[in-house]
Design a protein around this nucleic acid. Sequence first.
DNA 1: CGCTGTCTTGAGTACGATCAAGTACGGTGG
DNA 2: CCACCGTACTTGATCGTACTCAAGACAGCG
Lengths: 254, 254
Amino acid sequence: MNRPSGIDRPARQSRTEQVQLDTQQRCSGCDVGHLCVATGADETTLEKLDHLLEIRDGVTPSRVVVKRGDPFQGLIAVRSGCFKTYTHDRDGREHVLGFFLPGELIGLDAIERGFHQYDVIALDHGALCELDFEALVEISACSDGLRKQLFRLFASRLADVEWRTGDYTADERLAAFLLDISERLHQRGRDGQRFELPMSRSDIGSYLSLATETVSRVLSRFQKQQWIAVRRKQVSMIAPDALSSAAEAILESR
Amino acid sequence: MNRPSGIDRPARQSRTEQVQLDTQQRCSGCDVGHLCVATGADETTLEKLDHLLEIRDGVTPSRVVVKRGDPFQGLIAVRSGCFKTYTHDRDGREHVLGFFLPGELIGLDAIERGFHQYDVIALDHGALCELDFEALVEISACSDGLRKQLFRLFASRLADVEWRTGDYTADERLAAFLLDISERLHQRGRDGQRFELPMSRSDIGSYLSLATETVSRVLSRFQKQQWIAVRRKQVSMIAPDALSSAAEAILESR
DNA sequence: CGCTGTCTTGAGTACGATCAAGTACGGTGG
DNA sequence: CCACCGTACTTGATCGTACTCAAGACAGCG
């Protein structure tokens, strides 16, 4: 339960070189700077952030980047790709806690206890940034914008989790899930109307507290109702309004 | 959806008087200073916090202290009593989102959108502190301790919500709920072995996504099994170990 | 002492889980 | 290129937990 891995990365001394050599590998040159911690940061803060980053590039699908129990060294920001967080219970059943898209922060709940509460795995090819937490707290002293943004990112993670605690039907859950993914992709400059789900049916089921078979059945029914077109991971939103009204009970409470 | 109430209080100019007159009504003199924002704050920060507080005393049971849609003016800390947050969906069904004990913060998820996402009601006689958010962000610039504590409070709220998103049985949920309340009361210097539940069965059911009848049935069964003694709101924990092992699947994942 | 709301207990039902087959796809090797 | 295999997904049948509906018990209160 206590492998001292953190997010694995090239040797530490290469860090500053990387940052200095490759301007794309900074907060300032990041695709999702407008969603992530850099939002609203002034020039000085941005530069400090750039030097704080540990970038882990070229992460491949199924790569486990954090193990439960790893010491919490810093928050992990998704730079590209999609990641999932999960635990295994004693019976070996997997519980998926969240899916993370570019600009989103992983590891917020590790702050309190000092070690990660779950495993993190890549669902895609992607890249991550590790943000040393102590340093982040320190530089946030000088920037109202950064402090507020950190709170905002916390609040949005809270909102993501909160709706799933409610007592909703399989249809409501799946409709809300599809709309949520669609919107988040859209925010990130991707097509929110037609997209590829990076996760498996059983991941979705676990995330929504439904059996894999139920996920499959409901998606098939949505397709029969002409609300979506779905073929394996490929999804097209045909009647988002119908989905919205199916998910009404969830949507209106957030 | 937009009544400009915030937490209702005496007129603003009386604030400083109150703070200056009554030393008990400061962070420094608070029973739960060791759990709330004041934790780890130095003298200077503590004094700033004292001047930031708006205390709302003598809140009576069933009093609605925040309405959904109220503009977010500040975080609300429970000073004494117990409060619940909830929404109503279109059908009038109530969804309980959380129960808050002394030292816990209400309104974290209002930060992002700028208005409260749910109603807040008192379940007890109690008192609240409103902490102006802008001012809090401002004074947190000078205190690493305060900044970290705010993050920690966020993280613990996240942990509270997260376990309820999982797919657990009624027994697991209720066992975990009882243990959670018991522990939180204990942390606050109250008896964690024998206590009074401040909320109704239907509140518990809504919070755990169970029907009122199920809550009642499971509690009766726990009593028959000699795990607890329960009579209306009065609960005694007889075999907490049995509850722990019943809630194992939940407890091990946090 | 009866009224009211909350809680408990009972009986039947439904939604989604589980068990079980069958199908499509992607990868591998001949 | 195609045959084979393993995995992921889909579809069907049955089952079980927790919900719903309904009635009764209990406490608090006028």
